[in-house]
């Protein structure tokens, strides 16, 4: 259920939702939140709230997405008049507007040069540095984008958003080791982020879909995602999937599993995590049972439309249903 709310836009915006969002423009444009009265009175009779500006910013992005450039221009003018043209956030928003209007790659290069000029004056403007990476990505220069991002995270190593983006770029390029490193950095700053644990587990799984140490690590991180969010659909799905793949690979008894871990140690494994012994067969079987029952509960209650259970993504629930159906056959 994706309602078009400008204050808190949904986490995925499909074209119809974007259209619904941008169609709210006339109402917002009709009543400017700032007061037209002279200074001391304007403070007393203002109608602006912090939410007004969030709404303006989200509407600006929605208007750019739907190609409503005139609306975007007037919203940008309003924001600039309120916060000033040198505000870091406004500079980045103006950049987004110019990027959207750039018809060709040559024009986009011009926007890029504009960013370079801003950064020459003030290299600490991280909004613009991020836009620079986005432009490089948009131009198809993924290698340059990765280089720019590595410089960015070197200068600002606590920026979890940048680490997540870098991890994504590496993952799309198939550099699993680097992507895993980036996600581990995200976890360093946001240790409770269940989505980051699930993403890291996914990366471990994709890096080596049939190797025991990688699957064991994926299982550990999916388990952590479920521990942090007991209804995490992605965590439960991953837990069941990995457990199914792991069970045939695991040795039957504890003594054998210890010999396997000893053998792994002798192989000079590069990372410390591989030194951990693989999980017990019985533990993995128990985890799979838990994941199966919880997934079945989610699928059943979501399908029944029980109140308080309808917040899941339709496609994700469908995928869980298929996974459960496959296991039964």
């Amino acid at each position: 259920m994706a309602t078009a709310n400008l204050l808190t836009p949904p986490t995925t915006i499909t074209p119809p939702t974007a259209l619904a969002l941008s169609q709210k423009a006339p109402l917002i444009l009709a009543s400017p939140p700032t007061s037209t009265l002279p200074w001391p009175l304007s403070l007393l009779f203002t109608r602006e709230t912090p939410e007004s500006w969030t709404i303006h910013e989200n509407l600006l992005l929605a208007a750019l997405r739907t190609g409503d450039d005139a609306t975007a221009r007037s919203l940008l003018d309003r924001l600039t008049a309120r916060f000033g043209g040198t505000n870091e956030r406004i500079v980045a928003l103006r950049g987004i507007y110019e990027e959207a209007l750039a018809g060709s790659d040559a024009e986009l290069e011009k926007v890029f040069e504009g960013y370079e000029k801003v950064l020459k004056e003030d290299a600490t403007n991280f909004g613009v540095r991020k836009r620079r990476v986005a432009v490089l990505k948009s131009l198809g220069r993924v290698g340059d984008a990765i280089t720019a991002l590595t410089v960015l995270v070197e200068n600002s190593p606590t920026d979890a958003e940048a680490w997540a983006e870098l991890g994504e770029l590496y993952a799309v390029a198939g550099a699993w080791g680097q992507a895993i490193f980036c996600l581990e950095e995200v976890l360093l700053y946001m240790p409770n982020a269940w989505s980051a644990h699930a993403q890291l587990a996914t990366l471990h799984y994709l890096s080596a879909p049939a190797s025991l140490p990688a699957l064991a690590l994926a299982l550990r991180h999916f388990s952590r995602a479920v521990e942090l969010n007991s209804s995490s659909l992605r965590g439960l799905y991953g837990l069941k999937l990995i457990a199914q793949k792991l069970i045939p690979l695991l040795p039957q008894s504890q003594s054998q599993s210890q010999s396997v871990s000893k053998r792994n140690n002798n192989n000079n494994n590069p990372t410390d995590d591989d030194d951990l012994p693989p999980p017990n067969l019985s533990t993995v079987q128990k985890l799979e049972e838990i994941a199966t029952s919880k997934l079945a509960e989610i699928v059943r209650l979501y399908t029944a439309g029980k109140s308080g259970w309808t917040g899941f993504d339709e496609a994700e629930v469908q995928a869980a249903r298929e996974l459960l159906g496959k296991a039964e056959r």
Binding site: P9, R65, A134, A160, E161, E168, M190, L203, R234
Partner: peptide, 28 residues
Amino acid sequence: PYAFLGLDKGIGGKGEGRRGFWDVRGKR
């Protein structure tokens, strides 16, 4: 609270997270 990391839709997902890197041309 972690939606801003944009990790909940998986690799190459079409989420709205990571607003700093918003791909305006792609969405357009």
